[in-house]
Amino acid sequence: MFDLTGKAALVTGASGGIGGAIARALHKQGATVTLSGTRAEALEELKASLGDRAHVVAARMDDPADIDRLAKEAEAVMAGKLDILVNNAGITRDNLSMRMKDEEWDKVLQVNLTGTFRLTRATMRGMMKRRFGRVINITSIVGVTGNPGQANYAAAKAGLIGMSKSLAQELASRGITVNCLAPGFIATPMTDVLTDDQKKAILGRVPADRLGTPEEIAAGVVYLASDEAAYVTGQTLHINGGMAMI
């Protein structure tokens, strides 16, 4: 089950903790992967550790021309096709709303939501023609529950869920599924910056009483990317240790 041999996958934000784990898991299941992100050096390191069937196309998700180039180059390096798109790239610019600057709001929406839409649109054509596609958008628990200090991030992540449901309805008849995966608190560089007190407070709300691992998120992506998940579309898979049960 969940064999991805012969499939071509693009993972954005692959230089991050969760993105790297997703790329490794898809690769392990047999997929060819293209790693994207802004830190070319980290991407090259990951590529080297994967060996065959791995490519790097660095790109900025806040630059429309760069996103179109990414879509074209990813298809080109993977023998002209793209079956699995994992929109994982995301940034945070946390601030209480009273103090949040327009730039902080705009940047997060631009990268996390608009960039994801643009890349998905740019890759959709090939998937429609081939009558197969898996789009997996990495959203967040805070897109459903909200989080103080993250009005911008929560809005972008909630936006991904609505966008995915719309795309899912547009594309279902073409063999393309569009789903979201919503991680809870996962041990990554993004959550490493939290203080011990903050972590303790978070864990008090997690029935599993621990942070999740990037590998546990990656396993969910592998499922949604598989042939076996063909009848799952427009859904949000929550992987959060029971932190929110929705």
Binding site: M128, L171, S173, R174
Partner: peptide, 11 residues
């Protein structure tokens, strides 16, 4: 044809 078919035809 549905609306998506027309998009695909144009493509």
């Amino acid at each position: 044809a549905d609306s998506l078919d027309t998009v695909e035809l144009v493509m």
